[in-house]
C-alpha cells in the first residue's frame, strides 16, 4: 500500500513534492541530486527548513544541524519565483535572496531550485 514518507510541514511538503517529482521525471536531475552532499538550510520568514542531501537520498527536516549552505529568502519572494514573476538570479541580485553561508555552492543551489520549479 502506498505510504507517504515525506515531511508534514506546509513548506517542507512543497519542496519534498517538487524535488521528488522532478527526480522521477528527469534522470539527469536525479543523478545530480543523488550526488549532492550538503545540508542546505532555507530560511523562510515563517521558519527555517533543512534539506539534507546525502548519497542517493535527501530528507527535509525542521531540525537544523551542521549547515553547509544557508539561504535566506522571504516566503513571498520564494513564491514569486515559483509563480514565474521573478527569477532566482533577480532575487539574488536584488538581495532578496541572501547566502548567509556557503556562497561557493551558489551554482548548485541555483540548479537545485531552478530545475525544481
Amino acid at each position: 500500500m502506498e505510504k507517504y514518507e515525506g515531511p508534514t510541514d506546509i513548506f517542507g511538503i512543497a519542496i519534498y513534492s517538487a524535488l521528488t517529482r522532478k527526480m522521477e521525471e528527469d534522470p539527469e536531475y536525479r543523478a545530480f541530486i543523488e550526488n549532492l552532499n550538503m545540508n542546505l538550510i532555507v530560511e523562510l520568514d515563517y521558519y527555517p527548513l533543512m534539506i539534507k542531501f546525502e548519497k542517493d537520498k535527501f530528507t527535509i527536516t525542521r531540525d537544523i544541524e551542521d549547515p553547509t549552505v544557508i539561504v535566506k529568502i522571504n516566503t513571498q519572494d520564494f513564491l514569486d519565483i515559483v509563480d514565474g514573476k521573478s527569477s532566482i538570479i533577480r532575487k539574488f541580485l536584488g538581495r532578496k535572496m541572501k547566502f548567509k553561508k556557503g556562497i561557493t555552492k551558489l551554482f548548485k543551489v541555483y540548479k537545485i531550485f531552478s530545475k525544481m520549479m
Binding site: A18, T75, Q76, D83
Partner: peptide, 13 residues
C-alpha cells in the same frame, strides 16, 4: 503571502 494556485501546484503537484 499571495501566490497563484497554479504556481503552488508547480511545487505541490
Amino acid at each position: 503571502v499571495l501566490s497563484s494556485v497554479q504556481g503552488a501546484a508547480k511545487m505541490y503537484g
